[in-house]
Amino acid sequence: MEDLKIIGEKNIFFIPNVNFSVETGICELEGESYLENTFQFYAPLLKWLEDYMVHVNKPITFHFGLSYFNTSSSRSILDILNTLKQYEQQGGSVTVNWRIRDWDQDMKQDVEDFSIDANLPIHTQNY
């Protein structure tokens, strides 16, 4: 299994930075998410997590640093959280963090809703 790296860019669409490490189990998804084909972009991320759960089976620490996502992306983000929840239910160790700008009350609300939806605690860090 290999690391998953995607270098983000903010151009016509907003591609987030992806950095998933097999060695450490640390997964980072940060930047902004507004994509031409949301489901196509997130499919390999979900596939990577599923492979990791089966073949590596070590703790996962997921760091979200998304500062903007459109509603289409929000669905795929929930898919990631649901996959992590599933891992936890199978006995895997999962920690989820989310960095939020201290002024961003809308993001705070969105992250709360993700946490309720996936039934997974999300530790927020203000900056």
């Binding site: 509603t71 289409s72 929000s74 669905r75 929930l78 809308d106 609300q109 809703d113 309720i116 939806d117």
Partner: peptide, 24 residues
């Protein structure tokens, strides 16, 4: 949250929650 949890049907383009998100 309820709408976001519903399975996508074929040909669906968005998450179907745009209007609610705008109002919020």
């Amino acid at each position: 949250r309820e709408l976001r949890n519903q399975p996508m049907h074929e040909g669906q383009l968005g998450a179907n929650i745009g209007l609610i998100d705008m109002a919020l």
